[in-house]
Amino acid sequence: MPRRRLTIDFNIDDTLPSVTALIRVLDPMLECDDPNTVWDVDLSRCRYVGPDGAAVLLAAVLDTRLWGLQVEVTLPRDPPQLDAFCAFSGLKHRLHGEPMPDTSVPENETVPLHTFSRANFRDADPMIDLIRRHTGISKDSEDYLRISVNEVTQNVEDHSRSKIGGVSCARYLSGRREVRVAIVDCGAGIAETLRPRYPEITTGSVALQRVTIGKITALSRSNNAGLGISQLWNAIGTLGGRIFILSEDGAAENIKGTNRTIQRMDPPFPGTGVFFTLPVETSP
């Protein structure tokens, strides 16, 4: 069986350029339809992976395996903090079958990878619980985080038609008092779901431009009103957070508040990924 190696020898920061670079490396595997090929994804020389990279990596592996292809992943072991992240995020468990460590230990700052097919009120509970283990969280911060997560997971349920469902991962950085959340699917992108109702939306970039403004919906469910992404975008921007969304061949990122830059992604993202960082207001 032919083996093909994909090497990720750079840090996968929680940023648009890093996630884009990761997709560029994984693209041949995601585009492959030869079930005889065995893919070796080598991250041994990577020195940082965060929730964004973890969610994208797991989604890519699950999607590839769903098509009957074999994927083997070599995870990094150094530095020790990264090795710990690979354990606490569930990467070692999901990809190598290793037992999950006890994520309630005080030093843990990671919410493990979670796959879902339906949006659930309790999706943000692990994030809130994690933050509370480190600090108090204000009611407003809790509300913003829960609402932001639920806006995205509901979109995955309603629109994505993703066979792997959605994949989420999160991390609370206590030194920065911020929570980083990644929610990824490998389904139809935003443009593809909108196009039947809006034929003029021919690219992911145009789709992202429109949905971040709001009031545009694929009506995948009859009571959709097209407010979810714009709600999320405005909330994150207003609070001084960061957000970038990748969908098919489009990427949108906020620059200062709610202003957006839209750019073309090549290769395209195999679905939709929403990545945001929210400052956490602590409560006394």
Binding site: R146, N150, E151, D158, N223, N224, G228
Partner: peptide, 11 residues
């Protein structure tokens, strides 16, 4: 109630 997204209210 916590974390009610727009979809909840739309419905």
């Amino acid at each position: 109630m916590r974390g009610l997204p727009s979809s909840y209210f739309n419905e």
